Simulated scan of single mutants.
Amino acid sequence: MTAILVVDDDPHLLRALRITLQAHGYDVTTAADGHSALLSATQNPLALVILDLGLPDLDGTAVIRELRTWSRVPILVLSARHGSEDKVDALDAGADDYITKPFGLDELLARLRALLRRSTDPALEPVVTTDAFTVDLEKHRVTRDGLDIRLTPTEWKMLEVLVRNPEKLVTQQQLLSEVWGPAYAKETNYLRVYMAQLRRKLEPEAAAPRHLITEPGIGYRFLP
């Protein structure tokens, strides 16, 4: 049974999540603060952690950083904080995805399934296919409708980072650092320009993208 740790200081939400997740077949452990969460994570093999940022003892971001010193377990952050800065901090600390309270249980379960799929899938296949285009990571080749699409080296690097992290939210800072280097971590205008170019080349409708998705103020997500 898939083991999940849920960390939140709201006892009503903690109970509701435990009941819901157990009803969907998950083995659920709960914790009401950061120290209990870290202790539980060391004692139980986990498939995923659902973590609130607003904990009474440790900030959730500190819990993420501590977990990341020894574990690659997927982390789905829950928070009532709506500012993009908090989301970026949590993602840059090592969280894998983020959902803002209040949230729908269907969305939470979908995000959870996506994270579990990525963590249990074998190594990413060298060829990634969508209904609009195909990316061959080994050959550095992109095709659409059977025709080769010419990408600049920068467009390719940006697309490669996203494709190698399917469904995962990649922050602006991560993309800028990996494609242009750490010195460019604040040049978000670069991303807008190159993302627009990629969408014109790859998306059936550049103005309504289905695969290269913007998470406003935070980053981008590739949906196969």
Rank of each mutant, 00 (worst) to 15 (best):
G83S: 03
S36R: 12
L67Q: 13
L51A: 09
A90Y: 00
T120E: 12
A23G: 15
D136F: 06
A37C: 15
I99M: 11
V193D: 03
E187K: 10
L91K: 02
L78R: 00
G219I: 03
D9V: 04
F133L: 02
L58K: 14
I99W: 10
L55G: 11
D27H: 15
V6L: 09
I75A: 08
T100Q: 01
V127T: 15
A31G: 13
M195N: 12
L162K: 13
G219T: 02
L124K: 01
A208D: 07
L13A: 06
V170D: 14
P153F: 11
P153I: 08
Q172F: 08
F133Q: 08
A31E: 13
D57T: 14
L176E: 12
K186C: 00
E178F: 07
S84V: 00
T171F: 10
R200Y: 07
R192V: 13
Q172H: 14
H82V: 00
L21Y: 05
Q22A: 14
S79H: 00
D131F: 04
W156H: 07
G219D: 01
R199E: 14
R150V: 12
T100E: 01
L55I: 12
R221E: 07
L109D: 08
K201W: 03
L46P: 09
R68E: 09
L51E: 09
T100R: 01
Y190I: 06
A37Q: 15
T134R: 14
K201F: 02
S84T: 00
W70A: 04
G25C: 10
L115K: 13
L51C: 10
G54I: 01
A47I: 14
V127F: 11
T152G: 02
V6W: 13
F222S: 05
D121T: 12
E160P: 02
D145K: 05
L48W: 07
G219Y: 00
L159A: 14
L191F: 15
V88R: 00
V128I: 15
T30D: 15
V88K: 00
T171M: 08
I4D: 04
L223P: 01
K87R: 10
S36Y: 04
Q173I: 03
H12K: 01
A31S: 15
V163L: 10
D57Q: 13
W70K: 02
L191K: 14
L175R: 06
D27G: 05
L46S: 12
E160Y: 02
N189R: 14
L78W: 02
V163P: 13
H35N: 15
M158T: 14
T154C: 05
S79P: 07
P11Y: 00
A196W: 01
Y190C: 03
V77P: 00
R144H: 08
A95F: 11
D92R: 07
E138K: 05
D59Q: 09
D106V: 08
Q173F: 01
V88M: 00
T188M: 00
L176T: 13
M195Y: 06
P166V: 12
A95I: 04
R117Y: 15
A183Q: 08
E215W: 01
A183F: 03
P126W: 04
L116R: 06
Q172W: 02
T134L: 06
Q174F: 06
A47N: 15
D86G: 09
K201Q: 06
L112S: 07
V179A: 08
T188H: 05
E66W: 05
A3K: 05
V49F: 07
P209H: 07
A37R: 15
M195G: 11
R113Y: 01
